[in-house]
Amino acid sequence: MNMHPSHVQSSPDREDAQDALDTLRKWAMSATPEEVADLDPAVARLLPGQEVSNYPALARAYPEEFEVDDAYRATMPDLQNGPTSLIRGARQQLQHVGISNFRLPVRFHRRDESDLTLESSVTGTVSLEAGKKGINMSRIMRSFYKHAEKTFSFEVIEAALDDYITDLDSIDARIQMRFSYPMKIRSLRSGLEGYQYYDFALELVETEGVRRKFMHLDYVYSSTCPCSLELSEHARRERGQLATPHSQRSVARISVELVGEDCLWFEDLIDLARRAVPTETQVMVKREDEQAFAELNAANPIFVEDAARLFCKELLADGRVGDFRVVASHQESLHSHDAVSILTEGPTFAAQSLDPKLFNTLFHVG
């Protein structure tokens, strides 16, 4: 029997790779660009200064002098206005599509007849019919900028909404503007003044030709637990033991639909909230103010259920307010969790399901 030794093929080492590279480079030097491209276009990288003939020579410098004319613009692709065949996924209507958090300075009119310019965050959306691919979102911004120099009111927001409904050929649309509104607040006893900043949002919604106006306010206050207050007093009275009730910074998000002809000013909604729950957090504080605030909290102990109902009472009494919602969060100093409540009036804000992170947004970060 003849025995033949087995040949085990070993992996090439660096020397083998170098030999192969030299061979490939020699071949590429004598081959045509087409032959190189046919083998593998990457081989051309072995030949500095040579180009593959079927690969375009592209300019790499930014053409600052280039100007776009109508003829050139007409050749540019516009996928969002493409045919229905370009739609990916189900051909369903979108209730909202647009842009969120584009910012610009906006001038607002105040209750005292003065104007105030504030940085505003704008969200603009439209509905999208099932047979349309998409929208040109920059048109929403362009529509809004047409009116950005005007003193804003709901009438001006309506004009902006009209423009981008027309520009985008949509049925339903929405604009929301968020901003932080400053008001000078006087301290309780010392007479000092400082600016309190209130998170507001204005919202204009058009659905099936019907327009509705909404205002949202985050009101920040102190809540002293009534149970803790009574237990503290019990310890003092029964055992001569000093004890303090727990209180905490709390936030109520008040959302209202505006109805009727009379204006509900930003200051009006703040005043309404303060009448309902007077323990608003303070700005400028001296010792006499801190003592006064302790007395004010003791005079107005409040559970989170109480807060929602107190705001509700004031809102029901204001003829400029239609449907509304109050979402309250007491960020407990006793517990490692928060106490929360929601109260709605009318069908507008009623919901069976809640945003899982709704209460996480009710934090005042200063």
Score class of each variant (00 low, 15 high):
His4Glu: 12
Tyr145His: 13
Ile175Gly: 04
Ile185Asp: 08
Tyr198Arg: 00
Phe349Pro: 00
Arg253Cys: 04
Asn300Thr: 02
Glu295His: 07
Gln248Phe: 09
Gln248Thr: 12
Glu288Ser: 15
Ser232Asp: 01
Glu230Ile: 10
Gly191Asp: 05
Glu149Ala: 14
Ala159Glu: 15
Ser190Ile: 02
Val251Ile: 12
Ser232Met: 07
Ile99Tyr: 01
Ala71Gln: 14
Arg142Val: 11
Met284Gly: 02
Arg111Asp: 04
Ala90Phe: 13
Val126Glu: 05
Val210Trp: 02
Arg60Asp: 14
Leu354Ile: 08
Glu238Ala: 13
Ser255Ile: 03
Pro245Met: 03
Ser127Leu: 03
Val156Pro: 05
Ser30Val: 10
Asp306Leu: 00
Val327Tyr: 02
Asp167Trp: 09
Leu192Asp: 10
Val259Pro: 08
Thr125Arg: 13
Gly82Thr: 02
Leu168Met: 07
Asp268Leu: 01
Ser85Gln: 12
Phe359Glu: 06
Asn360Ala: 15
Glu206Asn: 10
Ser187His: 09
Gln9Val: 14
Gly131Gln: 13
Tyr145Leu: 13
Ala294Leu: 12
Gly319Asn: 14
Arg253Val: 00
Gly366Thr: 04
Arg309Gln: 11
Asp262Gln: 12
Glu51Leu: 11
Pro278Val: 11
Val283Arg: 10
His7Glu: 13
Ala20Arg: 12
Thr244His: 09
Glu149Cys: 00
Val220Arg: 05
Arg174Cys: 01
Pro41Glu: 01
Ala273Asp: 08
Glu64Tyr: 11
Glu230Arg: 14
Gly194Met: 00
Asn136Met: 07
Thr151Cys: 10
Glu257Leu: 07
Gly319Ala: 11
Leu316Val: 01
Phe359His: 03
Ala74Leu: 07
Val210Gly: 01
Tyr221Phe: 15
Val156Leu: 04
Ser190Glu: 07
Ser85Val: 09
Ser100Trp: 10
Asp13Cys: 11
Gln95Asp: 15
Asn300Cys: 03
Arg275Ala: 04
Pro12Phe: 11
Phe303Tyr: 13
Arg103Ser: 15
Pro41Lys: 03
Pro245Leu: 06
Thr244Tyr: 10
Val8Tyr: 07
Arg60Asn: 13
Arg103His: 11
Pro83Asn: 08
Gln248Asn: 14
